[in-house]
Design a protein around this nucleic acid. Structure first.
Length: 230
DNA sequence: CCCTGATTCGC
DNA sequence: GCGAATCAGG
């Protein structure tokens, strides 16, 4: 299999959507997980929450020698270039920049009547101000889901038709619907939540706090219409 | 063990 | 450029 434009586009979209390399590889077919990862890197995509790189915080480990990014464990055989001194690059201050969430609150119509002090339970702030909470803090505000009118039902007629890969832009929700490569595969196409690749509704899907493996009750809302049945 | 992404390096 | 082999972490 070769990397056609379509396959690359699918790879990009799925990678961008948070699909794992395995899922992408399975979806594309004919390629391995490694191939997908390798291609993704060559395309310039990379990183994205990877389970294996959970480290790098306020690292209080003076014992660990500075390892910028590429610390080849098997360096010996080939010093391909006259690698000079490991330039003492000052460890870049890992400063996550939480965006001001003032402008786009996820649920403007339903400001939670929280009294206060909930801030102490916030674990971190997601992109654009989505609050990530500890697993134990999930059920408190959410479950009695009030009738949510998150978005106008049909803002415009231009989404009447399916939003194809080529119709994507910064303005429309890029949440994938169906399976890439199939006739009915399309994207949500709803108006995006400003600053996000998805509409408000799908932002809610995309930026959920990760629950512990054992504690996932509801069938996880998988992108791409769920696992393909072959 | 399973999974994940990252990296290397022969092709 | 490609991707299997390997590494490294959860």
């Amino acid at each position: 299999m070769s990397w056609t434009d379509e396959r690359i586009a699918t790879l990009k979209k799925m990678w961008e959507s948070g699909s794992t390399a395995s899922q992408i590889a399975d979806e594309l077919g004919g390629v391995s997980r490694n191939a997908v990862i390798g291609k993704a890197h060559r395309l310039g995509l990379k990183s994205r929450p990877s389970p294996v790189k959970a480290n790098d915080k306020a690292n209080a480990k003076p014992a660990s020698p500075p390892k910028p990014a590429a610390a080849p464990k098997k360096a010996p055989p080939k010093p391909r270039a006259a690698a000079p001194e490991p330039t003492p690059v000052p460890a870049k201050e890992a400063a996550p920049a939480p965006r001001p969430a003032a402008s786009n609150t996820p649920i403007p119509s339903q400001p939670l009547p929280n009294k206060n002090a909930d801030v102490s339970r916030i674990v971190s702030v997601g992109p654009g101000g989505f609050l990530r909470q500890g697993p134990g803090d999930q059920q408190a505000p959410i479950p009695p889901a009030p009738p949510r009118r998150l978005v106008p039902a049909k803002p415009s007629a231009e989404i009447a038709d399916k939003t194809s890969l080529l119709d994507l832009s910064d303005k429309v929700c890029r949440w994938p619907m169906g399976h890439p490569g199939e006739a009915d595969f399309h994207f949500c196409g709803e108006q995006v939540n400003p600053g996000f690749p998805y509409c408000i509704e799908h932002c809610g899907r995309a930026y959920q706090a990760q629950l512990p493996r054992g504690a996932r009750r509801p069938p996880p809302p998988l992108p791409f219409g769920g696992p393909r049945v072959r």
